[in-house]
Design a protein around this nucleic acid. Structure first.
Lengths: 132, 132
DNA sequence: GTACAAGAGACAAAAACGATCTTTTGGGTT
DNA sequence: AACCCAAAAGATCGTTTTTGTCTCTTGTAC
């Protein structure tokens, strides 16, 4: 019922990028050190964020990472779901077979309400807003 | 970011109890079998629920479990938190040291908003409402 | 072509999850 | 008192997930 370190680290790293001059490439080592996250781990996390198009990267000398879009156009939800997977209150919402026999689960609508609320809150927060 | 089986099973068991004649003692084996949950596991889960006062139990012949209060007065949140622990979006909300250096975490207020919303939704659902 | 930095994949320790089993305690019945 | 019955308590245990690390490869700039 909570974020893992991967999620926490991803947010820290992305907020750090959001604070930089837009488009400027930053080394993952620099990010990791200043936001206090293990370097190799953050590198792996950013690999995923790159693959999903949240950041862009460049290799070789002068390379690094930068946000793929303006910080105001990247939501907290996007970052979290990129590393943690879709926000889901209970497996039964995704996998009907997880519900008890038959699967006519009376709690189902509650899970949907929870998910919708959480998503809505997280949608309304952009990286730009987290830079203060 | 989701309920574990323990939580799911607890809810199934509690809803089953809520459907019974109030005060009637039900064997854990009966509950486990009808809600399709491993017996020993459900027994452990109900031990915890008893300790926390959500159900009452009686040993020996004719023993079993029953809700400690009317189903309308037990919220879904109580059941979930009893087995999963407090609802918490991110460890940094509980443990300040988990936040990055210094701990002036700009995401903090967001986590609070998330938690409050989830708790509120779950508070407003009683076991009685889950019996239909 | 060489140095640099990200990409990709294998590996691994530690913690959490998902149970199971045995023994003990307490309540009812004969 | 002896005896069953069912929950309480605690130990154990395999699997999965989390939380990393390490090495090697690929691409880029100079």
């Amino acid at each position: 019922m909570g974020l893992t370190r991967k999620g926490e680290y991803a947010i820290r790293g992305m907020v750090y990028l959001a604070r930089q001059e837009p488009g400027k490439l930053i080394l993952v080592n620099e990010i990791a050190e200043t936001v206090d996250v293990p370097q190799s781990f953050l590198a792996k996390i950013f690999q995923g964020l790159t693959r999903l198009g949240l950041v862009r990267s460049s290799r070789g000398a002068g390379g690094g990472f930068a946000l793929a879009r303006p910080a105001s156009e990247i939501s907290l939800r996007e970052v979290i779901e990129a590393v943690e997977g879709p926000i889901c209150a209970n497996r039964c919402v995704i996998d009907a077979s997880f519900c008890g026999r038959g699967g006519n689960c009376t709690v189902h609508p509650v899970w949907h309400r929870v998910q919708d609320q959480v998503r809505s809150i997280l949608d309304d927060v952009s990286l730009a807003e987290l830079c203060d």
